[in-house]
């Protein structure tokens, strides 16, 4: 999942999970705003097979125009791999810094502002002199 030089938000979600549905627009807003500055969004659907068509429809409706993923095999194994301390509550978001190291884990839904407070400093770790102008402007706002 490491994307060298990128800050990665990897989110486990389900199309039928109401908190996931509510959070999604904020997540996409964050992605659209910060992708040009190095944010990568990895969406991992934990939908059961019977729900996957609905998941595809949901993603299309949210304007997801990049590859998204689905779990395969044991969901218990997926939970352990995603974060051993995770109870399995959806949604959940794993945060990786630019060097691919885990920088945090966020169980439950979050808002745009909550995500932004996490992502912005990690993107800024390149150093202020390399910080893109739009991001610098956002920071000072």
């Amino acid at each position: 999942m490491s994307k060298h030089g990128k800050v990665v938000l990897a989110q486990a979600w389900s199309s039928l999970c109401l908190p996931c549905q509510e959070e999604f627009p904020d997540l996409m807003r964050l992605y659209r705003e910060f992708a040009p500055h190095g944010l990568e969004l990895v969406l991992i659907s934990a939908d059961l097979q019977a729900w996957r068509e609905q998941a595809r429809t949901f993603l299309a409706g949210q304007g997801v125009d990049f590859p998204a993923f689905s779990t395969t095999g044991s969901l218990e194994a997926f939970i352990e791999a995603f974060d051993p301390a995770w109870s399995g509550s959806l949604p959940a978001t794993l945060v990786l810094g630019q060097n691919g190291q885990r920088r945090g884990f966020w169980p439950g839904a979050a808002t745009y502002e909550e995500f932004r407070k996490v992502v912005e400093p990690l993107l800024g770790e390149k150093g202020p002199e390399k910080c893109p102008a739009p991001l610098a402007a956002a920071r000072s706002a």
């Binding site: 999970c17 934990a46 509550s89 169980p107 839904a109």
Partner: peptide
């Protein structure tokens, strides 16, 4: 462990 919906 199993997946589930976050308690609101």
């Amino acid at each position: 462990k199993a997946l589930g919906c976050t308690i609101k």
